[in-house]
Design a protein around this nucleic acid. Structure first.
Lengths: 238, 238
DNA sequence: ACTGGCCTATTGGCTAGGCCACTGATCCAT
DNA sequence: ATGGATCAGTGGCCTAGCCAATAGGCCAGT
């Protein structure tokens, strides 16, 4: 045979990287480090190229790559400015145009997170439970301080997603996370909502801890529905 | 006021395009026209640049863009070769590496399609029902002819997805459709499976027609589970 | 025969330097 | 105020060239 040996572990494919790739990564790293926001400007190409020790042509390639990915937009005669959202997925692009997109977001949240909760109940490890508990504590503390607990809320859902141990579901959640975030902020700014949300989280967490998939799914479903009430009916009765 | 006029229809933002963008499009058009396949080679940069009437630097930018998007891979010293699938979504990329990815695909199918079935039961129009029926007929006909009915199977799920009237869910299904297709082909090649699949479809369709969301969800869930049995337990008992 | 080393043509990677075009701010004339 | 000219700064693109990797052929050794 031509290659009788196991090809899986042999040499090393030897990752060849192009210079422009390294440059692009350095730039994004620099953006992160300096906490640059949308609208901020990168240094001029000539200066940036000199500072990175590459030619302007190479830097230009890196900028093309970043532009294609959606990190920056290069404006002739003006400069290179950061775009807000780093390259949204096609899913998000497709939906963002709609003004009345919130119902759809809730639909897909319900679909994914209910399943995620059920899987989490079956597959969660001790580490997963610890992470979930930590997010509950964080949210409780945030509420004590009169905050809305947006971060802790996200933390909880991320922990549950991780506990489901499905890369595909997790990746899909990530894809729509920016959409979810918008509804979440809206929801948690309703008075009394953070506290209700926390008790919903506690119910979900308890079901996951018990390994009760059906209960976890039901609790998550109820939770998502509660959020949807708020998002849809602005001035609700309570 | 500064701009009292409606800004929506005024002049034209005047689409400025970079040269590399035009070049990239010309290249992809050329690929399409000549029906090039994965593995085929583009002409050498020097020649291609000359033929397109641009500098090598600009052509190089275009190739970077095409490389980032995933259309080609540029190999130092060798040439520029076409990649197979044009830029899969990140979701698909994330999962494709796994050999044991089928369970995850089933998880997310279950999550999405169950919800889709429930929504379809609530929102379906007469046109939606007609499309669903058409797919059922197509599958029945295919089975009569001894075929597996892969296309009709996809047609059915597409029709149900459309009936749910959620762009976001539909788009997400599209994203993972290539993954689902793989499991579907595997499933339908089991003897007797197409017929079972068809009766599952009929049950789903009936529930959707009745407007019974819970029944539709349950039927879809059962259907997805049946498929998963086949995919996971190769030589199953039946 | 088969292997391994070597050479070489071909091809992409990257740089340097330069000119042109666009943008925005400023200043001036109307 | 308005409109036009000017100018500095910035990206767009090009030419010319050398460097580096690859593939394929040739050849000696086994």
């Amino acid at each position: 045979m031509v290659t009788p040996q196991a090809s899986a572990d042999l040499p090393t494919p030897l990752a060849r990287t192009r210079l422009y790739e390294q440059v692009a990564e350095q730039i994004t790293a620099w953006i992160r480090q300096n906490g640059l926001q949308a609208g901020d400007r990168l240094p001029p190409e000539r200066e940036l190229a000199a500072r990175l020790g590459v030619s302007r042509a190479t830097l230009s390639q890196a900028l093309v790559a970043l532009e294609v990915v959606g990190v920056v937009v290069v404006r002739h005669g003006d400069g290179t400015v950061l775009t807000g959202r780093h390259s949204e997925s096609r899913i998000v692009e497709a939906i963002r145009a709609h003004a009345d997109r919130i119902p759809e977001i809730i639909d897909i949240r319900d679909a994914l997170e209910t399943k995620i909760a059920a899987l989490a109940a079956q597959r969660r490890t001790e580490e997963d439970l610890a992470a979930i508990d930590a997010s509950l504590d964080a949210m409780a503390a945030a509420i004590e301080h009169g905050e809305r607990g947006v971060d802790a809320d996200e933390q909880f859902h991320a922990a549950v997603t991780a506990a489901a141990h499905s890369d595909l579901l997790a990746q899909t959640m990530r894809e729509i996370s920016s959409l979810i975030r918008e509804t979440r902020i809206e929801s948690l700014s309703q008075p009394g909502r953070p506290r209700n949300s926390l008790s919903g989280h506690r119910a979900i967490a308890a079901a996951i801890r018990d390994g009760d998939a059906a209960a976890a799914a039901a609790a998550m479903h109820a939770h998502v529905e509660m959020v949807s009430d708020v998002a849809l009916l602005r001035g609700d009765e309570r």
